[in-house]
């Protein structure tokens, strides 16, 4: 039983790591209805910038602030060069634009900062501690606390501030929001900036565990089933989806994997996601779209 519990708990913690990546997608989808294919590239760019600054001797806090500013600058550039010319276009057009953007960001990151694999030490010990008879990673606990803090901050920002209310208005009805004076470009810049900073946090957590390298951009593959299950437009959904995916894939690997002589976690999360699409197409917490016909 303790083995089952340990597997379950480690899966839940892994799920929190997936959620960290998924939140970036949710933010942009909420504000613009666009699935941002470039989120993984942004995550790589942020982590690479941060680790490069650290390697040049910059203190941790300053490197974090400078990287955040770089991500804000990137958001402004993206809004100006990519989103603004495509305003009022079909979401599929915007999706394709973000797909191209991901290659540009990845290429630019490597051109500017090289292809090396970097070690990233956040100073958080990655050792197991015993909690209630089961071993839990100290790093995972702290990563979860970071994710919870991030979610709480975003929830307060979106529910209690003027900017958050504007953002929700844009998400609810773009044209109506614009008609009452909300400036769409400003909202997009803010949302992409916040998504960039979320990408930085996710990049640091993932980069600390696997090294900062090109494959960091691939962690977004883990976020897709999380988004389908949790819903593309809900931050709590991203957390719930992440926990569900993390736990089920860990248990599936242990209990189903041996039956098929291989690892099942890669596709098991997608099977789960397809199942959810059949029952709840908008995900657990996503907004159901109702269209007049």
């Amino acid at each position: 039983m303790s083995y089952f519990l340990e597997t379950l708990v480690s899966g839940l913690f892994a799920g929190v790591m997936y959620s960290l990546v998924a939140i970036g997608f949710v933010l942009i989808y909420k504000a613009s209805g666009v699935f941002n294919f470039a989120q993984g590239a942004m995550l790589l760019f942020a982590a690479l910038t941060f680790v490069t600054l650290i390697e040049k001797g910059m203190p941790f806090a300053l490197a974090f602030i400078v990287t955040s500013l770089v991500m804000v600058a990137m958001a402004i550039l993206i809004e100006w060069l990519v989103l603004r010319p495509l305003r009022n276009r079909d979401p599929l057009t915007l999706f394709m634009a973000t797909s191209g953007l991901s290659y540009v960001i990845e290429g630019f990151a490597q051109l500017l900062m090289g292809m090396d694999v970097h070690m990233l030490d956040l100073g958080i010990p990655d050792v197991a501690v015993q909690v209630g008879g089961i071993y839990v990673s100290q790093f995972d606990i702290i990563a979860s606390l970071i994710a919870l803090t991030l979610v709480a901050t975003l929830a307060i920002t979106f529910n209690k501030t003027r900017m958050g209310i504007s953002l929700r208005a844009v998400a609810s009805d773009t044209l109506a929001a614009q008609s009452i004076g909300i400036r769409l470009p400003v909202i997009w810049r803010i949302v992409w900036s916040v998504a960039g900073i979320v990408a930085l946090v996710a990049g640091l957590v993932w980069g600390s565990r696997q090294g900062v390298q090109y494959s960091l951009s691939l962690v977004t593959l883990k976020a897709l089933p999380v988004l389908i299950i949790g819903g593309f437009s809900s931050i709590p959904g991203a957390i719930a989806g992440g926990l569900l995916v993390g736990a089920t894939e860990a248990l599936a690997d242990i209990y189903i994997g041996p039956l098929v002589n291989g690892s099942v976690s890669t596709w098991f999360a997608y099977i789960l996601a397809v199942g959810f699409l059949q029952i709840r197409p908008a995900g657990l917490f996503g907004d159901r779209e109702i269209e007049r016909v």
Binding site: S137, S215, K222, I254, V264
Partner: peptide, 19 residues
């Protein structure tokens, strides 16, 4: 013990090894 590509999460596999 298999690890799915790319192998960015291996907690369950190492629990198996320890067990």
């Amino acid at each position: 013990i298999p690890v799915p590509h790319p192998g960015e999460q291996q907690q369950t596999q190492w629990q198996q090894i320890r067990r």
